[in-house]
Simulated assay, not measured.
Amino acid sequence: MQVIGLCRFSWPGEGGFQVEHPDLDARIAYLYSDARMEARLRQFEAIALPGLRAQTDPDFTLLVIIGETLPEKWRDRLLALLEGFPQARVMPMPPGPHRRVMQDAINDARRDPDAACLQFRHDDDDAVAIDFVERLRRAARDCAGLLEGNRLVGFDFNRGLVARAGPQGLAVAETVIPLYGVALGLAARGGVRQTIMNFAHKKLNRFMPVVSFGDSAMFIRGLGQDNDSRQRPGIPEPKLTRPDPATVQLLHDRFRISEVDVRRVFAAR
């Protein structure tokens, strides 16, 4: 079964953000500011890419959606980070309604629209475990009867960590959160054009059956000052601590994330 992931890398669309802007120009200015783009590229390099590159099942496609107006210096930096990662496909897209444009991007990537496929969404500051694609495929096989009886089925791997990265390394906390948006997949029956990007991730179980797995750490949710989901007042701040030796080993074994690499990437100027 084909597996398609989608990552919006600062794509200036209509909707899809919790931070509101008065117009498209204001949104573009916010997304492409130097400080924000530096932070996103560092998170992408140090947190998101290591686990994606090391997937135990490499048979997947990752669509990296960027704006057609992304300045050349940032586009070049992004392309350099993706060298040697054949699963990644950078797709410049014009502004448009968020859900429709993302739906079209995923459906255009389906090799056979009449065959079932697996999909996942991924933010550029998050990580999935190295066996995420393998586990997603296994979940679909194990739930074959459920897939036969439903147009869409969700798969939620809800155990992981939240982490803040910086020049001093990582501060982390373990967590179990349902429908967090990272390590969240969906099976779409052949001929169904709705995609994982058509639904708010926290509300996925309102529209389809969702099977949850909480047996092992499957995600890292990256925390930063420019997180879209953390811009509203009243967002609780998790209690983060420096990783102990067991957590350092888990970060390497499950996500291929190294404290040395994190410090190097975030200390660079």
Rank of each mutant, 00 (worst) to 15 (best):
D156N: 11
F157I: 14
G160L: 03
G166Q: 00
Q168H: 02
L170N: 07
A171L: 06
V172W: 01
A173V: 00
T175R: 02
V176A: 07
I177N: 00
I177S: 08
P178W: 00
L179C: 04
A183W: 03
G185R: 01
G185S: 04
G185Q: 08
G185D: 01
L186S: 07
A187M: 07
R189M: 06
G191R: 04
V192I: 15
R193L: 10
R193I: 09
T195N: 10
T195K: 06
A200Y: 05
H201I: 06
L204C: 08
L204Q: 09
N205A: 15
R206G: 06
M208N: 13
P209D: 05
V210E: 06
V211C: 12
F213A: 14
F213V: 14
D215F: 10
S216Q: 15
A217P: 13
M218F: 14
F219N: 08
F219G: 12
F219W: 08
I220T: 12
R221E: 06
G222V: 00
L223M: 08
L223Q: 06
L223E: 04
G224E: 04
Q225V: 13
D226T: 15
N227K: 10
N227I: 12
D228Q: 12
D228K: 12
P233R: 05
G234H: 05
P238G: 07
L240R: 08
L240D: 04
T241I: 14
P243T: 13
D244G: 15
D244I: 08
D244S: 15
P245W: 06
L251Q: 02
D253R: 13
R254I: 07
R256C: 14
E259K: 03
E259T: 15
V262F: 02
R264I: 12
V265A: 04
